[in-house]
Design a protein around this nucleic acid. Sequence first.
DNA 1: AGCACGCCGACT
DNA 2: GTCGGCGTGCTC
Length: 732
Amino acid sequence: MALDLVAVALPTPLRRCFDYLVPPELRACLPPGVRVEVPFGRRQLIGLVVSAPRQAEGGGYQYKPVSRVLDPAPLAPPDWLKLVLWAAEYYQYPVGEVVAAALPAPLREGRPALGRQARRLGLTGAGRQALALLPARAHRQRALLSALAAADLQLLAGEASGFDAAVLRKALEQQWVEERDAVAEPGARTAAPPLSAAQQQALAALQSAPPGFSVSLLEGVTGSGKTELYLRLAEQTLLAGRQVLVLVPEIGLTPQLSARFAERFGAAVASFHSGMTEVERNDAWLAVAARRVQVLVGTRSAVFAPFADLGLVVVDEEHDASYKQQEGFRYHARDLALLRAKECAAMAVLGSATPALESLAHARSGRYRHVRLEQRISGRAPPPAQLIDLNVYPTRHGLTEPLLAAVSRHLEAGGQCLLFINRRGYAPTLLCEVCHWTAPCRHCDARMTLHRARGRLVCHHCGHEELPPRVCPSCGGARLLPVGEGTERIEDALRNHFPGHRVERFDAERLRGGDKLERLLDEVRARKVEILVGTQMLAKGHDFPALSLVGVVNADQALFSADFRAVERLGQLLTQVAGRAGRAEQSPHPAEVLIQTREPQNPQLRLLLGAGYGALAERLLAERAEAGLPPSGHLVLLRAEAPHMTEAQVFLRGARDLALAMLDGASEVQLLGPAPAPMERREGRYRAQLLLQASRRAPLHRLLPGWLDQLEALPAARRLRWSLDVDPIDLF
DNA sequence: AGCACGCCGACT
DNA sequence: GTCGGCGTGCTC
């Protein structure tokens, strides 16, 4: 007997879809991309139709019928669904969970696909009169009305107004405030600033890409004005009636960039990131599908926004590791963005001052167009970096005399100083002077970091906290010494050394919650802060016009790391930090970059400082080719964690044997391990991994589906946590 | 993942 | 005698 069936993706960890009977009257209502409610076991679930209804022989199976269709039309165009299905296959992750990651929560849970629209609020004549007559205690109404007296409030799709809902409701009721049409105007609203000669050249090079799909790597030093080029390309795309996706690596960078886009393009712009509420994200998502929004600025997950006609994809700071999701569905947003662009015949631009080796390799092979922007807008070359040898100069609280002297010099000349140290807390180790005991975390193979102001020892791997012991728990010795330094200690040392100068610390601990980062950055720009101490969050994207000295307290951690990407990352980080200095014309003092190191002869460090990131990248690419590592080879990592190391090892050995049985001896796929993770125990669990390596993707990816089916059937697989990471960027 | 079914220990 | 532990099996 022939049956009408549709395949439905459901939110379960099963790596397959499920077929449902199509009642005859619903046959026309079930195109791919609509949501349905279906019975699944004893539950009712919301799922997504992923195939057109098809005729099939029953084969005796009792299929269940679709219970309900939620959408009159597909939620998103076919290329969106294609991206979702492709990602599920490529990352070998359950389709239903990929769909769940690609849909905002309200849609996932079956809420109707109705979004709130972009709005514009304006002050009425009555409102203007009311503003003069408001009683003094009505300060919240006053704030609202005076803000609107200055300018209409333009709210993007899904954006909160920033005013209390009750206050807004009252003002609308009183007709002090009215809703006006929020017009999404194509083209620029505010005039674009003129381009430098170098920018003009780069823009011309970008624009000379053939119509349709193309990828350009825009390699532009910090301060060279890449953002203005994105804006120009976006304007052109909008005038052609197509939409724009701009990806940024982290939420902290969205306000700046979306503000610049909104300033230029008005209501056509929306943001999308994890700091928004689910409802806000839902509104933005739906507005993109309905073409009420033309430009979306967002983090990783914005790559799944349902563009109706995507014409331009920008991936800013494309080298940034935040684009790779590090748990669950481990996708790389940059890679998916390129796939997306290809399917939509859109132009893709990868922007960075320090491109990933992957992207450089593609540029070198001609697969990407390589556009360089080597001149800063200011015309000033980035300052040269100099090394301070920690074997020669003693330190106090991590700082050498030459570095402190440089800080004095720049402060006297009215410049700002940035001290970079990629470690939070006061000191990474608490050491007993007598027996050399160090404070360990009871859940991890790691030392506890001393946070002195909080009076706590904190493990940065699991979050465990303890009170520091008074005496050594091992020998009873009374002299426990903080060894090494973190941001807090550097901050203290600088406060003591430069009393009367304002020192501010920038790290996750200090800036937790709210808009503290934004507020502090404003104070930096207003020159109220003279010395900045911080972690890598200071290296990313922010503009400090008056900054003239960058000091790197210690560059050495990465030089000893086991991770094969450590030196690439160090090169990117040092280049990005150094790029914060001397960006603006009004920089009061020639800029300087000083790097403290115990390894001044390190060849990679010298190459970076002498010949720049590009030269280091060339060297690293050659090394990767030699070792068969990315981008010259391809990796898949199977991780496992269990209460005891033997359980993890037994599972991974089983996995290895299955893979060996599936591969013939001559296969290009190499298996490495199983081996314990670099940190064997973390959060109380033992971790190990099995690495698959191949010079070509095809044989590796051919292996995966069948291998995973067998892995899931392994009895050991049920008793521990394991996951597959395709194209891993960290080896645990 | 959920959610059932199923077969062994300490409690009203 | 039952409530409940988590092993194992299935979900169109």
